[in-house]
Design a binder for these strands. Structure first.
Length: 576
RNA sequence: GCGCUCGUAGCUCAGCUGGAUAGAGCGCCGGACUUCGAAUCCGUAGGCCGAAGGUUCGAAUCCUUCCGAGCGCGCCA
């Protein structure tokens, strides 16, 4: 029986007993028991605070706790002040746990709460006028992680990327290139395509300060693009492909992938018909100047325009259309937009407006809003080129990881030096970005992010590598049956308990759309393990029974580390 | 001005959705490698949880007000 079932059964037992006490006191209903985990292992494994029940029964909580313990009369219960705690039979749990982990393997900790649900996750959504920067990296980390977490909860997930390849900002880099490019190409300069195009975007922003007329020229270029001007469209296609090639390389290196791409150059046409239908349905209204509006008073907001007076569409219009189109392409039960918090208003309006149009799935749309990434000395400014470039950052982290491996003389141990260094870099980066709750703004401290010591991704990877290395020295198969009764240390108890809790953490992470639940869990588990492993021999434990039991425990920790790594983009390494 | 989000150790962050003495990492100081990998482990110091009220047996967590920060509030995307 696993921890959850054990808790439920104790809860039922104690509630039943409470009910008996209540009846003798002439009371009928008591509030449901709260189930908690005690802060320290010495206090047991399950805690039931009795404040509310004691109050109704007119007893002090400690008295009630003692009364319950006496009535139930088992050594597993202990009273700690106002709490009635259970110290469960850890060896039984350890056996069940080992069996479950052995049978489920990479799927241990997964569940079926979202089985049969189709969830679309949109993330990344880069512009084609510049390379990925740190902000995109946070977006990508969260997008990949939440997708993995939802899958682990049984959902069928479709990851989609919407490429913003259209608009006046795209024309700015095109304009600068046409004026100052001299026919250079990524090939001729050896510059990665997205950076090449990005350079011209920065150049535009510099030049426009001297020559404000560039603004109008960019607008004119956009008009020409929309009118299908051959020369402009050709330039657009050329520069777009440069950027997209560069982005594809970055995604591959950062292990980010998508099931489907949408392009704004197509989606920008969507939505107009839907808005017009809304006018017919009477959920939107038309002003005298012919513009179309939606009234948002019902959700405490003002009014929002959906079609311009000249009949052309807006950002909101196309997002309406795109959402509808996507649901036709791949009917989903819910959809998650991983987009920075600055667009909260937009999504609030979008979801509400889709509801007005009568789409039942509108209530299942979710904006996974995440905070800004700032630098210790302030904001990033992409127009000024004051950004932490994604490729550069990964490059630098990889270089430092490589140096570390070399200085420790582990080149032979790790096999592929490049690959291992990159894995460590990505582990460091993803962990750094995901350990912060998504809703919060965060400060990215370059000096700190490249540290591989302390509460970092590489620390976790190192634990995985050490366990792997130790188990490789164990000559025999990992035992299938063992005597769990010899695992008597508090840390061993704590490890078993934490491993058993993993599934609930996976659920919580999905419910809250919060990968930081997983990173926090990982650190706790690793910390407990490393202390235990530091203090206690495994292969050289004093008795064969203890060796077996500890080997099983270590291999269980290893499996759970791997499973959790997969949810937060930390590559597993058998050696590093 | 209005709306949303957020104020926790010097710095960067947790805090299991209202419960036990508020925890980590970094940094500081001090310990542990003839021992399964020291990218490790252990210890010391460091807090009026932005402030004041309120609800509650019980508040970092919920409510109100104030202070401070970020982001929104275009027929831009």
């Amino acid at each position: 029986m696993m921890l959850r079932a054990i808790r439920a059964s104790w809860k039922a037992r104690i509630e039943e007993e409470l009910q008996k006490i209540a009846e003798t006191n002439g009371k009928v209903t008591l509030p449901e028991l709260i189930v908690q985990t005690p802060p320290k292992v010495e206090l047991g494994d399950i805690a039931f605070p009795l404040f509310a029940q004691a109050k109704i029964l007119g007893m002090s909580p400690p008295a009630l706790a003692n009364e319950l313990k006496n009535r139930l009369n088992t050594h597993e219960l202990l009273v700690s002040g106002p709490y009635l705690n259970v110290r469960i039979d850890m060896s039984a749990l350890a056996l069940d746990l080992a069996k479950a982990i052995r049978e489920e393997g990479d799927a241990y900790g997964h569940n079926k709460t979202l089985a049969g649900k189709r969830v679309m996750v949109e993330f990344s959504c880069p512009n084609t006028n510049k390379p990925l920067h740190l902000g995109h990296l946070r977006n990508d980390s969260i997008g990949e992680s939440i997708s993995a977490i939802l899958k682990a909860n049984g959902a069928e997930v479709r990851k989609v990327n919407l490429i913003n390849n259209r608009g006046v900002h795209i024309c700015k880099s095109m304009l600068a290139y046409r004026k100052f490019g001299n026919g250079e190409t990524p090939q001729s300069t050896g510059r990665k395509g997205d950076h090449f195009v990005g350079d011209y975007y920065v150049l535009y922003n510099r030049k426009v300060e001297e020559d404000p007329s560039l603004e109008q020229q960019a607008q004119a270029m956009l008009k020409a693009w929309e009118d299908g001007d051959e020369e402009v469209v050709a330039l657009w296609e050329k520069m777009n492909s440069w950027t997209l090639e560069g982005l594809a390389q970055s995604y591959e290196r950062m292990r980010v992938s998508f099931d489907h791409y949408y392009y704004e150059s197509e989606t920008y046409r969507y939505g107009k018909d839907e808005v017009l239908k809304g006018v017919e349905q009477g959920v939107f209204y038309r002003e005298a100047d012919n513009s179309v509006w939606v009234d948002l008073e019902a959700i405490g907001l003002d009014k929002k325009v959906l079609l311009r007076s000249d009949g052309t569409s807006l950002y909101m219009t196309q997002d309406l259309g795109t959402a509808i189109r996507r649901n036709e392409d791949w009917p989903f039960d819910s959809m998650i937009y991983v987009v920075a918090s600055e667009q909260q208003y937009h999504f609030k309006v979008l979801f509400y407006t889709l509801g007005l149009l009568g789409y039942p799935w509108a209530k299942d749309l979710h904006h996974l809003s995440y905070g800004m990434v700032n630098l210790p000395d302030g904001k990033m400014k992409s127009r000024e080129g004051k950004v932490v470039d994604g490729d550069d950052l990964v490059e630098e982290l990889t270089r430092l990881a490589k140096e570390e491996i070399i200085s420790k003389e582990r080149e032979d141990l790790v096999g592929d030096l490049e690959e291992t260094s990159l894995s460590i870099a990505l582990g460091a980066l993803n962990y750094y970005l995901l350990q912060v709750s998504p809703t919060k703004d965060m400060i990215f401290n370059p000096a700190e992010s490249i540290s591989f010591n302390g509460n970092t991704g590489p620390y976790l990877q190192y634990m995985g590598a050490r366990i792997s290395s130790m188990l490789a020295k164990y000559e025999k198969e990992i035992p299938v049956s063992f005597d769990a009764g010899v695992l008597t240390l508090e840390d061993e108890r704590s490890l078993v308990r934490q491993l058993a809790l993993f599934g609930e953490v996976v659920e919580r992470a999905a419910e809250g759309y919060d990968p930081s639940q997983i990173t926090a869990y990982l650190y706790e588990l690793s910390k407990t393990f490393s202390r235990w492993y530091h203090d206690n021999p495994v292969l050289k434990a004093p008795t064969p029974a203890l060796v077996e039991a500890r080997v099983v425990l270590a291999s269980n920790v290893l499996q759970v580390l791997k499973n959790a790594f997969a949810l937060v983009g930390i590559p597993f390494l058998a050696a590093m």
